[in-house]
Nucleic acid binder design. Structure first.
Lengths: 185, 185
DNA sequence: TTTTCCATGTAACTCGTTACATGATTTC
DNA sequence: GAAATCATGTAACGAGTTACATGGAAAA
């Protein structure tokens, strides 16, 4: 009744998916994630190393150690047939189930009425500015042409960012105008 | 260098915010959250009880025990002046900082190319259907008129849901049509 | 009379992060 | 010669969830 397959583990899916393209060692994988997938996942290096070893125990990947020159030895992971099946199973589940992301900002929104409107407007404009900076950085990373799927997922992310920007502009303007009215009348 | 104020704690903000409206006991608060804020927060009952007691130790709330009939005694929490300051501070931070939600579904998107297009289209249509069901439920809860801020945050959530629906419909249609082409030609 | 609701609390556990250890090697 | 990169690993810690304990009252 407990087990682990109820909640989909998108971290394993990610690692297996990367290994579907080619075998790789941990450092390589972590590097790729850090440089390209900042907005897609929050997995940390230590976690990835542990997960890779765990997947080796489960038989989803095999390991063999490589030595290049006399640099630190690399543990190169390759996906196995069972790993491929697991990957496909996780992928299907991931595709079928909508995720319910939590927007932490919604908690603040709930209590807007406890601060003066113009102050709220000011804070939201701050938020807007930061968001736009994030979006600029994000779009730079977007142009480096990736595989089709990666491109798609980054564009998906961008759509939600853009919605957020539009929404913030609208709300901030509303708050602004409603305080202006009072000032004018 | 570590401390607790670096990452904004939206759970405390939520609890303090609820107590800004009126004093309440733990069960009452948990009940409200469970019935109204399913999509806003993931805080669990046990966590809320612990947090309320912790905030009492920090002086942000006071507790007094009430007995109604001989039902289980209630621990009623009231926000203190220091609590109000903390609430406002957390609220300002929450409003100023955009959140970077993680869309777990984006991980799956990255690896679309590893399944046949028509299968992907099928899975995404499944996802779409489930999402629409969620949205129906959500909209029912939306109509029960809440305070202005709560209404706003729920509408915000709805916007993102709607974007997701539109996006899914577009992508699923694209995948469908590109497999149709092959069938026709 | 069995189930659900009221009302709180906590021990055990899971999961993941932080922070550090190690050591060679290229770059500045 | 100092700093960043390469490459992995793990112990300690923290946060939060699960699952259970308790026990009366109201609803079915």
């Amino acid at each position: 009744m407990k087990g682990g397959n109820d909640v989909i583990d998108e971290r394993s899916l990610l690692l297996l998916g990367i290994l579907m393209a080619q075998s790789a060692h941990g450092y390589q994988i972590n590097d790729f994630i850090e440089k390209n997938l900042l907005y897609v996942t929050e997995i940390k290096k230590a976690t990835a190393y542990v997960l890779l070893d765990r997947m080796a125990l489960s038989g989803f990947v095999t390991v063999h150690t490589e030595q290049a020159g006399n640099r630190p030895p690399r543990k190169v992971y390759s996906i196995t047939p069972e790993g491929i099946e697991q990957f496909q199973s996780l992928l299907r589940q991931n595709l079928e189930h909508p995720d319910s992301p939590i927007y932490k900002g919604d908690v603040g929104l709930m209590f807007l009425d406890h601060l003066p409107k113009d102050e709220v407007a000011h804070h939201l404009q701050q938020r807007l500015q930061r968001l736009q900076e994030q979006m600029n950085l994000f779009q730079k990373g977007l142009s480096h042409s990736h595989a089709a799927g990666i491109q798609l997922s980054l564009e998906h992310r961008l759509l939600h960012m853009q919605l957020e920007v539009d929404w913030l502009e609208r709300i901030a303007a509303q708050l602004q105008s409603s305080t202006d009215e009072k000032t004018v009348q």
